[in-house]
Design a binder for these strands. Sequence first.
DNA 1: ATAAGGGTTCCAGTTAGGGGAAGGTCAAGG
DNA 2: CCTTGACCTTCCCCTAACTGGAACCCTTAT
Lengths: 129, 129
Amino acid sequence: MNIGDVAAQTGLPPKTIRYYEDIGLVVPGRSDNGYRQFRDQDLHKLAFLGRARALGFTIEDCRTLLALYEDETRASSDVKRVARSHLAKIEAKIADLQAMRDTLTHLVDCCAGDDRPDCPILQDLGGTS
Amino acid sequence: MNIGDVAAQTGLPPKTIRYYEDIGLVVPGRSDNGYRQFRDQDLHKLAFLGRARALGFTIEDCRTLLALYEDETRASSDVKRVARSHLAKIEAKIADLQAMRDTLTHLVDCCAGDDRPDCPILQDLGGTS
DNA sequence: ATAAGGGTTCCAGTTAGGGGAAGGTCAAGG
DNA sequence: CCTTGACCTTCCCCTAACTGGAACCCTTAT
C-alpha cells in the first residue's frame, strides 16, 4: 500500500506520515522503486497515532502509548498514569483559557465598539486600574 | 534604565524584551556602552504587552493593539473587533479541550490502573470499538 | 589584578508538522 | 513510442514565541 492510500484510510496527511517515519514511530518497508510500502500493521499503528493525537497527546506520549500498546506484559497502571498526567495538563489549560475568556468577555462587554476612541479594553491593557 | 531593571519591573524576562525589540514592538535607546536604555514610555509599552500576552493575544494582535493604544483617533470598534476575534478563538479552543477532557476522563475512569495489561484506554486508541 | 554580575550578539532548539522545489515512477491515451 | 498527469521521493525552509547557551564586553568591588 502506498502512502496516498494510507493517508486516505487513516485521515493523516502524507506529510504527517513521513514525519512519523522520520521520528521512528512507524517503519514502513520500501518497494524496489523506493516507494514506502505500508502493511496492515503500519496502518493500524498510524490509526492509533491519529486517535491519540486527536486526544491531544504529545508525540512523546504517543510513543510511550504505542510501546505500551505493543507490550503484552504492560501494566494498565502505566497507561493510566500517562493519560492522567495528560488530563491534568488539559484541565490546567482549560482553566487558563477560561480565566482569559472571563476577563475578555467582561472587557468586550464594556467596550462600546463605536467610532469614539474611549475603550476599556485598552485602558485595562494600559494599566489604568 | 537597564534591561534587568525593566525585567524586574515588568515581569518580562530580558530575553523576551530583547525579542520584542527585535520584532519592532519597542525601540529602546542605547547608551554609549551599547546597553539598551529604557524610558518610562518603553516600560509602559512593555507592561501593556505583558498584559496583552497574558490574555493570550498573539504578538501580531499585540502589535495592532499597541498601535491602536497609541492612536488617539482610533475607533473603539477596531479594538473590540480584535478582542472579539481573539475571544472566539479562545472559546473554540476551550470547546476542543473540553471534548478531549470528557473523553479522557471517561477512559481514565474505566481503566483499572493495576498491573494487568487489559486497558480500555489502549483499546479505544487501537480502534477496538 | 581579578572576580562577580551586569550587559551584548548570534546561533540553535523547541512542537508538529506545512509549503514548495526538483526530480524519479507508473498507468493510460494518442 | 511518447507524452501527460498523478503519484512518489528527498531536501530545505517556515511557522510562534520565545529559551538556552556560547563567546565576549562593561562596570564595580575587593
